[in-house]
Nucleic acid binder design. Structure first.
Lengths: 232, 232
DNA sequence: GTCTATATCATGATAGAC
DNA sequence: GTCTATCATGATATAGAC
C-alpha cells in the first residue's frame, strides 16, 4: 500500500511526452536533446529509451497521442453535418468548420497542452524529416479523402484541382497562424488580441472562407473565346 | 596568367552558400552538418570557418544574400504603383502583387536557386531558433511598415487590427504553399501542376485577395444594434 | 587561401547494479 | 522500473604546415 507521489504524477511516460512536446515546439526535433527532455520532465536519462526505445519513436508517440483524437473529432464533426443535411451537399462553411474549427478549438486549449501541440503540428507540415512526413501522411489518410469529397460536392462549379489547391492554402494559413505566433510580431510590433484564445478562430474563419470562395482566375495564355480583346 | 578552373567556379564562398541553402531546405539548420555542406560544395571542411567564422554566421549569410534583394524589389514594386496612383490609395490587388507577386516570381525561378531559397524562407518563419527570428525581424523592419500603411489606406473601412491579422494569414498561406510542396501530397495524392512555375501564383493570388477582402465577422457577444434579431 | 590533423564537447544509446 | 556509468559517434571549431 503505497501513496502516490505527487511530484511524480502523472507517470513518467506521460511526463516525458509533455516535456518533449513543449521542447520540440521551442527548439525543433533535432535541436532538442534527450537530456533536455528528461531534465524538464524530471526523470532519468535512460527512461526515454526504456519507455520508447529510441528518440524517433518518442517523436512519433508525441504526435500519435493527440493526432488520432484530433482526426476522429474532425470526422465526427463532418458526419454530424452530413446527418443533418440528409444527403444534400454541405455548405462550404460547414466543411471548413468541421476541419479547421476543430483544430482551432484544440489550439485554443492552453490548459491541457492542445495549444502547444497545434503549434508543433503546424510547424511539422513543413518539416523536412522524411519519417515524420511519412507518419503524418499515414495519420491523415483516413481523413483527407472524406473532406475532399465533401468539398467537391459542395462546390460543383469549381474544378476539383482548384479545390485541392485552396484546401492546401487554407491548411497553410491556419498552420502558420497557429505555429507562427512569433512571426506575427513581424507584422504587428504591438500585441494583438492573442490572449483571447477564441480570437484567432473568429478572425481566421472568414479569411479562409473568403479565399475558398474567391472568383477563379482566368486561364493564363489561352484568350477568351467570346467577347472583345482588352486593349493593353 | 592562370585559367579559371571550371570545377571551381563559382568561387568557394559562393559554392558553400549554394550547398548550404539546398541542404538547409532538405534537412533543416540543425540537422545539416558542416561536413555535409562542404561535401556537397566540394570544398574543404575548414573553409566554412575560414570564410564565415562559424555556422551561425553562414546561416545568416545564406539569408542576407537573397533577402536584401527581395525586400528591395518589394519596395520598388510598391513605389512604382504609388507613383502611378499620384497620391490616391492603392488597390488591394496592387499591394498584394507588390509583396506576394515578387515573392512568387522569385519562387518560380528554379534556375538561379530562387525557388530553393523561398522554400527555405517559408519554413523559417516558423523557425524556433531565436537568432534566426531576430535576424528576420531586422531584415523586414524597413518593408513591413510601408506595406501596412498602404493597406490601411487602401482599406479604410476595415479595422487596422483586422488588416494586420489578414496580412499575417496571407503570409502564412504563401509561405506554406511554397515551403510545403511536399505537404501538398497530403491533400492531393496525384501530382498537381507543379511543373509550371507560374501556376502557383495564378492560383494563390485570387485566394489571397478573396481572404483579404472577405466580409468581417460579427463581433462575438455584442449584439447588432440595428436590424431584427435572427431567429436561431 | 587551402589543406590535414586534431582538440573538445555533446549526442543517442546501452550495460548492468539495484 | 529506475539509476549510474560509460561507449561510440559525430558535431563544431581550430592549430599549424604548405
Amino acid at each position: 500500500m503505497r501513496a502516490i507521489d505527487i511530484r511524480q504524477s502523472p507517470d513518467t511516460r506521460e511526463r516525458i511526452l509533455d516535456a518533449a512536446e513543449s521542447l520540440f515546439v521551442e527548439y525543433g526535433f533535432e535541436a532538442t536533446s534527450m537530456r533536455q527532455i528528461t531534465g524538464r520532465a524530471g526523470v532519468n536519462l535512460a527512461s526515454i529509451n526504456y519507455h520508447f526505445g529510441a528518440k524517433e519513436a518518442l517523436i512519433q508517440e508525441v504526435f500519435r497521442r493527440r493526432l488520432t483524437w484530433l482526426n476522429r473529432e474532425r470526422l465526427n464533426a463532418l458526419e454530424r453535418f452530413e446527418k443533418e443535411a440528409k444527403g444534400a451537399p454541405l455548405k462550404p462553411h460547414q466543411i471548413v468548420e468541421a476541419f479547421f474549427g476543430v483544430s482551432l478549438r484544440m489550439a485554443a486549449d492552453t490548459e491541457q497542452g492542445g495549444h502547444t501541440f497545434m503549434r508543433l503540428l503546424g510547424r511539422t507540415y513543413t518539416e523536412p524529416s522524411a519519417f515524420v512526413r511519412q507518419f503524418l501522411a499515414d495519420e491523415y489518410a483516413a481523413v483527407v479523402p472524406r473532406f475532399k469529397q465533401a468539398l467537391f460536392r459542395s462546390l460543383p462549379d469549381v474544378p476539383p484541382e482548384e479545390i485541392l489547391w485552396r484546401f492546401h492554402f487554407m491548411l497553410g494559413a491556419m498552420s502558420y497562424a497557429i505555429a507562427g505566433t512569433d512571426a506575427l510580431q513581424l507584422v504587428a510590433e504591438y500585441e494583438l488580441d492573442e490572449k483571447d484564445p477564441g480570437a484567432l478562430a473568429r478572425r481566421l474563419m472568414p479569411f479562409l472562407l473568403g479565399g475558398l470562395r474567391a472568383p477563379l482566375a482566368e486561364a493564363p495564355a489561352k484568350p477568351r473565346e467570346k467577347g472583345p480583346r482588352r486593349a493593353v
